[in-house]
Design a protein around this nucleic acid. Structure first.
Length: 253
DNA sequence: ATGTCACAGTCCCTGTGA
């Protein structure tokens, strides 16, 4: 079972890249973030032609998350079931595994109200993880907008006092780990940066100025069944790329 | 810090978000 998470930064703008990537890489399950589409525009039919069932939680101009699967899709869950109007989390069951596609709020700046929204959002995610059905495998993947440690940041000195690296954000990820989840890419690639995002500006990709903020959290039993996890940097190259690369996990179930 | 990209509306430029 091959699972990927990818922030596509507009599925409308990225469709040619997404379609060719699905054909080339044949993932079984794809967790997508930032579709920036309403459900009306979502390419359900094109994905079905490629063999994928899809579930979308669309908003329009901003946000928007989706799950694609070629191995079944049921019990779709949109949002946390609260008053939050932003489309940032969708869950579904595929091949007996509960999967979530998450687009964690950016936070903007430590002194910005959006940063508090980010921490509250991560707290709600933690509650969801705590409430999970522990008889099932779980994958909580997405754009977390947090670099878990300094290894996940190309130059920590640039980010002093910034979002994405603060202790409160990192502790929110550690809370997921205390609930029994494991950061798959880090577990299988200790000591390697594995950046997944590079700013469009400054030639950041060419210079290697990246962050590892796109993560796949899995339960410990699923880690035991994992064979590899990697970043597909090739998807960040070429014509009209997203600023994020897909992060892949492979399992023998 | 900022050598970019995508969106919507003010609509071929500008403000906003990332």
């Amino acid at each position: 079972m091959k699972v990927a998470t990818w922030n596509v930064n507009s599925l409308s703008a990225r469709w040619p890249r997404v379609e060719s990537w699905l054909i080339d890489q044949h993932p079984d399950v794809v967790l997508i973030q930032e579709t920036k589409q309403t459900d009306v525009k979502f390419p359900f039919a094109q994905l079905e032609a490629l063999g994928y069932e899809s579930a979308h939680y669309g908003q329009g101009q901003w946000n928007g998350v989706a799950i694609l699967s070629r191995i079944g899709l049921s019990d779709v869950e949109r949002g946390f079931g609260d008053a939050d109007a932003e489309a940032r989390i969708i869950g579904a069951t595929t091949a007996g595994v509960r999967v979530y596609s998450c687009y964690v709020p950016n936070g903007r700046a430590i002194d910005n109200p959006h940063y508090q929204y980010k921490l509250e959002w991560l707290s709600k995610l933690h509650q969801l993880v705590e409430r999970r059905d522990r008889a099932r495998h779980i994958v909580v993947g997405g754009d977390f907008n947090v670099a878990p440690t300094d290894l996940d940041c190309y130059d920590p000195s640039v980010f002093v006092g910034a979002t994405h690296v603060s202790e409160a954000e990192r502790d929110a990820l550690r809370a997921l780990e205390r609930s029994g989840l494991v950061d798959l890419t880090r577990a299988l690639n200790p000591g390697e940066p594995c950046y997944s995002w590079w700013d469009y500006r400054n030639g950041s990709f060419r210079r290697g100025w990246g962050l590892r903020i796109d993560l796949l959290f899995v339960d410990r039993d699923l880690l035991d069944k994992a064979s590899s996890s990697y970043v597909d940097r090739d998807a960040r190259k070429g014509e009209k790329p997203s600023d994020h690369a897909p992060v892949v996990g492979e399992f023998t179930i």
